[in-house]
């Protein structure tokens, strides 16, 4: 069974809980490729599908989702795209790098080696347009949110809390300690695909000195 459960999320959405959490992105991609659902949103442990009840009834939609998932062979899904990001770590770009490293009894370089050596993947987006939660950082590294969130975190900033990196696509308020800033443009408001990072995108982080 691909899904552990499927539950109604109000009158026009279903939340799918995969049996294997790693399959969320493949499930979302398979559903999105059908082009019939209004939204297909990956969460931490779920994929939520919004539909138009005027087009298909709740029961018909449930069956459509299940049959769409029956047709996909999740094992043979080709791996998602991969993006290399170059991260600056000067004091201005990485205000909390040293404190984060020290909290783990590491030097900044040792700490960064652990991060860049991890198998990083965009787990989901949310919080703000293009804001990416990146998984793959081992739980051994500890870190928590800033006690006083910043009014302004710059676009490209890379935050760290235990288990995750958070990458800011836009300038805005933010509560993650910042350990670097990437040079790539993550958000282009003039493009039809304004956001560079999508759920499932693999990330290679390179430190630029």
């Amino acid at each position: 069974m691909i899904l552990q459960k499927i539950l109604a999320c109000g009158d026009d959405a279903y939340r799918l809980m995969p049996s294997d959490n790693h399959q969320r992105h493949a499930i979302a991609e398979a559903l999105r490729s059908k082009g019939v659902w209004s939204e297909v949103v990956v969460g931490r442990e779920s994929v939520t599908v919004q539909y138009d009840p005027c087009e298909t009834s709740p029961e018909a939609t449930r069956k459509l989702i299940l049959s769409a998932l029956d047709q996909v062979n999740l094992v043979t899904q080709k791996s998602a795209s991969s993006v290399t990001l170059r991260m600056r770590i000067d004091e201005k770009s990485a205000p909390e790098l040293v404190t984060c490293a020290e909290a783990n009894g590491l030097s900044a370089n040792e700490f960064l080696d652990r991060i860049t050596g991890s198998d990083l993947m965009v787990d989901m987006l949310g919080f703000a347009p293009g804001f990416a939660y990146v998984s793959g950082v081992g739980d051994a590294l500890v870190g928590k949110r800033l006690e006083h969130p910043r009014q302004l975190t710059h676009a490209g900033s890379v935050g760290f809390i235990q288990g995750f990196l958070g990458i800011y696509a836009l300038d805005g308020p933010g509560g993650w300690p910042i350990i670097g800033q990437v040079s790539e443009r993550l958000f282009d408001k003039t493009s039809d695909n304004p956001v560079l990072l999508a759920p499932g995108t693999r990330i290679k982080l390179e430190v630029s000195q």
Partner: peptide
Amino acid sequence: RTGMRHVGIP
């Protein structure tokens, strides 16, 4: 805006 919630666009 529709079809862009998965990349965080409301």
